[in-house]
């Protein structure tokens, strides 16, 4: 018994140190910092009644920076395009059109998008006379407020992009109604002197 007491204090200490070290290591398993008491985007909340941490903005709230876009809100019957039409704007419009419009309106604007094919009401073709004559403000109004079965896209498409899309829709309309005289000389030559119509059409498609 006395010899046991003589030898046990050191191992006892060693054991205690080991146990403490193990506890420390186990402490690493706690992930307090990984789950902090804060909200990240779209996180649920137990505090607010509707269960969302994101609050609804008060009605008629003006988004920061949106005042600068005020000039872009032109009336429905106006035909004054509020932005300079550049290649860059058209390319942006093409990209946005493909994302937001082509599912129903189709890549060519004829109303044969995949969603329409799958059973949605076919939207009118942009190439019909009514829409070819419609002022640009009309398109802006439809994107902003919706029309018929189409809900509004004001949340998804900011004003500048709406105009980019409208510019592209105008380009789509032109693509089926451009007189040959309007083509640049090089293209006109290809079209006229191309010989075989198939070759001409092919060249035209590549240029576009």
């Amino acid at each position: 018994m006395s010899s046991a007491a003589r030898f046990s204090s050191l191992p006892r200490l060693a054991g205690a140190v080991c146990a403490a070290a193990c506890l420390l290591v186990l402490g690493g398993c706690r992930q307090d910092m990984a789950r902090q008491p804060k909200y990240r985007a779209l996180a649920p909340s137990t505090f607010f009644e509707d269960g969302r941490s994101e609050r609804q903005p008060v009605e008629n709230t003006v988004e920061r920076g949106a005042l600068a876009d005020d000039d872009l809100n032109i009336p429905k019957d106006s035909n004054a395009f509020p932005l300079p039409v550049t290649q860059q704007l058209l390319e942006r419009g093409q990209e946005r059109y493909k994302i937001f419009c082509s599912p129903c309106h189709g890549l060519q604007g004829d109303g044969n998008g995949m969603i329409a094919i799958r059973g949605m009401k076919h939207p009118p073709s942009y190439h019909q006379d009514r829409l070819r004559q419609a002022p640009v403000g009309y398109f802006y109004d439809v994107i902003t407020h919706g029309f018929g079965a189409m809900y509004d896209y004001s949340a998804q498409i900011p004003p500048r992009d709406r105009w980019a899309i409208i510019a592209y829709v105008r380009a789509l309309q032109l693509s089926r109604n451009a007189p040959a005289a309007d083509l640049p000389p090089a293209l006109r030559q290809k079209l006229g002197a191309g010989g075989a119509p198939a070759a001409a059409a092919h060249a035209g498609g590549a240029e576009k």
Partner: peptide, 19 residues
């Protein structure tokens, strides 16, 4: 933005009000 964004239910209804 930092977050990709989850669509509001209205985006679902763009199509599923009909389909």
């Amino acid at each position: 933005s930092a977050v990709a964004g989850l669509p509001p239910t209205k985006t679902c209804m763009n199509c599923h009000s009909v389909l």
